[in-house]
């Protein structure tokens, strides 16, 4: 049994043992093992050349990772909080994301940028954000946001072995909230762009990803008690995303609620909703409804209320069922 954050450290260690090109870099990732302990034990096992404490500069971390990747390493950079990606954002957008395209494929940057993201930890607006839409809107980046230890293992391995820059978002309020047995196989991987149907249902579809999977699962359990059968999907991967699985379930049941804690406008679920409407409008029995964070900076005092919790999800379910 292991938590998400333990799984991150163990998976990194496995990949570093498998491939000596894999290096870990970031603030406090060395002896300290990361402020969340996501790199715990790596420094002792692999030493300072492969587990590198960097200056406090996200631009330097991401930019240097690009240069290392171009030179043949497989850097896994940690950004201490997703909220601090912005000083390094230009390096992601102008360098990492566009290198393959602008060079006609002669250079590319196989690298992973890991970052704890999401609210519910009393962190205020600079320790709670979910900036995935920025990344998804940047062609050249792949984006994953798993929610369980097993998916963390399978997707982190795939991300490290991928030939493109992958943004690996980790739901930090679930870091130690879930414990499960994780496959021991060092070759256990999960392809990017593959959603997981966690629960088969007959009345409606609930779709979410990342930290919000916890509240969405709770809502599904609550519905089961009320004899309402929800099909539950964890997207896991946002770029690419698994359109087929989503469309299949939604076409079958005709009703869908989309849950994601990032701000409402241009939330990734807006894209999912638009795709559903464009491609399978005729099968819909109700308009897709998004349950999201609000279009405000992430608040401090209303830390829990901002999140799309089970009650808000249940209200949306009622709406699509009664439509």
């Amino acid at each position: 049994m292991q938590t998400i954050v333990q799984t991150v450290a163990r998976t990194l260690a496995e990949e570093m043992r498998r491939d000596d090109r894999v290096v870990v870099m970031g603030e406090d990732v060395g002896k300290r093992g990361g402020v969340f302990l996501a790199t715990e034990g790596l420094f002792d096992q692999f030493g300072p050349d492969r587990v590198m404490d960097t200056p406090l500069s996200e631009a330097a971390i991401i930019g240097a990772a690009v240069g290392m990747a171009v030179h043949g390493l497989r850097p896994v950079a940690e950004i201490q909080f997703a909220d601090y990606i912005f000083p390094g954002f230009d390096q992601l957008v102008s360098q990492a994301a566009k290198l393959r395209y602008r060079s006609g494929g002669i250079f590319h940057a196989p690298m992973v940028v890991r970052m704890p993201a999401g609210g519910g930890v009393k962190g205020g607006h600079h320790h709670s954000q979910n900036p995935e839409s920025h990344f998804i809107h940047t062609p050249g980046l792949k984006v994953v946001y798993p929610s369980t230890p097993t998916d963390i293992k399978g997707l982190l391995k795939t991300a490290i072995r991928d030939e493109d820059p992958v943004i690996f978002m980790e739901p930090k309020r679930l870091y130690r909230a879930i414990k499960e047995d994780v496959p021991e196989d060092i070759e256990f991987t999960i392809p990017l762009g593959q959603a997981k149907v966690l629960r088969q249902g007959t009345d409606l579809v609930l779709i979410s990803y990342g930290g919000s999977m916890a509240e969405t699962s709770k809502a599904a359990e609550e519905l089961a008690k009320q004899q309402i059968s929800a099909e539950l999907i964890d997207l896991r991967s946002l770029m690419p995303w698994d359109k087929e699985t989503v469309l299949k379930s939604v076409a079958r049941l005709g009703r869908v609620v989309l849950v994601s804690e990032s701000p409402h406008t241009l939330n990734f679920m807006s894209e999912v909703s638009a795709t559903i409407c464009e491609e399978i409008l005729d099968s819909l029995l109700a308009p897709p409804i998004r349950v999201t964070g609000f279009d405000t900076p992430y608040p401090y005092a209303q830390d829990r209320e901002y999140l799309p919790g089970p009650n808000r999800i249940l209200r949306a379910v009622q709406k699509v069922l009664e439509y």
């Binding site: 631009a59 930019g63 690009v66 240069g67 290392m68 030179h71 360098q95």
Partner: peptide
């Protein structure tokens, strides 16, 4: 320039 430094560190 940051990528240049990354290559040099490698």
């Amino acid at each position: 320039i940051p990528p240049a430094v990354g290559t040099a560190i490698s």
